[in-house]
């Protein structure tokens, strides 16, 4: 008379596999909010806010690998570009009259090469928008937008 025991064991097995597949194996997902209210931001149009956006430029190779990170023309070191970018952003944000107060007005404009893999863009957004510190998240700049897309490079 093993049948009821086997029934229950299978039930528990299915239950725990499903629960773990939902929570443990599949990592939770989160979002980065991007606000781009202008219908099509035309070039040469002046920004309404007083503080100019910080320009972050990401260059890529033709295969889409990262070839260089620039913050307002200054090239970040190639060994840890996003870490350096984040340190510079922290400096800029804390310079603006007390910690955190300037962050709301600041805006970052991402200018990426067409072929750049999307994961590097997310890396840059991560570096700019916040930092994990002692288990919590310190927010840096949350106004992020893209420039109009660059032309498709000729092969």
């Amino acid at each position: 008379m093993m049948t009821p025991m086997i029934d229950i064991v299978f039930l528990l097995l299915v239950f725990f596999i499903m629960t773990l597949a939902d929570r443990g194996f599949v990592a939770p997902e989160g979002d980065f909010n991007i606000r781009m209210p202008v219908a099509a931001p035309s070039e040469g149009k002046l920004d309404e806010s007083l503080v100019l956006p910080l320009k972050v430029r990401l260059k890529s190779t033709s295969e889409g690998r990262l070839a260089g990170v620039y913050l307002a023309e200054a090239r970040m070191p190639d060994n840890a570009p996003f870490q350096a970018l984040q340190e510079r952003i922290i400096q800029i944000v804390s310079d603006d009259a007390g910690p955190g107060s300037g962050a709301e007005d600041r805006e970052v404009e991402l200018d990426c090469d067409y072929n750049l893999r999307f994961e590097y863009a997310i890396d840059a957004i991560t570096a700019v928008s916040g930092k994990v510190q002692q288990g919590g998240i310190v927010k840096l700049i949350d106004k992020i937008r893209f420039t109009p897309p660059r032309e498709v490079p000729k092969p």
Binding site: D31, I34, R35, P37
Partner: peptide, 11 residues
């Protein structure tokens, strides 16, 4: 006008 780029939590 509003966009959300979705990413997976780093393991």
């Amino acid at each position: 006008e509003k966009f959300a780029l979705r990413a997976k939590q780093q393991e």
